[in-house]
């Protein structure tokens, strides 16, 4: 954060917190969309069936694993790209 005064850094930090909240909500929302769309299909009752509950639970676990894995790859690839750009 070079070139920012203390007041600017504070302001920026507040905005970043807001952004993180927003991003978490986007990721969470996409997860709900995906898992509900993939797992819930039986509208003969008002309550989730055992099959649906199980599917949702596996979907959440798998989505979290996917995000963790892709997060690691993203960090590596982003670091490599940044290093590449600074060499030029």
């Amino acid at each position: 954060m070079e070139g920012l005064t203390a007041a600017e850094s504070r302001e920026l930090e507040q905005r970043l917190q807001k952004r993180q909240v927003k991003e978490f909500m986007t990721v969470f929302g996409n997860l709900v969309d995906n898992c509900f769309a993939a797992c819930v299909d039986d509208f003969t009752s008002r309550a989730l069936s055992g099959r649906e509950t199980g599917c949702l639970s596996r979907c959440v676990t798998k989505s979290m694993a996917t995000q963790t894995r892709l997060g690691e790859r993203f960090a590596e690839l982003n670091a490599a790209m940044t290093a590449e750009m600074q060499k030029r």
């Binding site: 898992c35 797992c39 008002r46 963790t68």
Partner: peptide, 30 residues
């Protein structure tokens, strides 16, 4: 639609709770 709404609420809550439980352990969203 009525049943879907009820299932959506249940699913939403179930998923939130699971994320809080497992996410805290795995550092979800990092």
């Amino acid at each position: 639609l009525d049943r879907c709404a009820a299932k959506f609420f249940e699913a939403h809550q179930t998923i939130s709770e699971q994320l809080q439980r497992e996410g805290a352990a795995r550092g979800f969203g990092a």
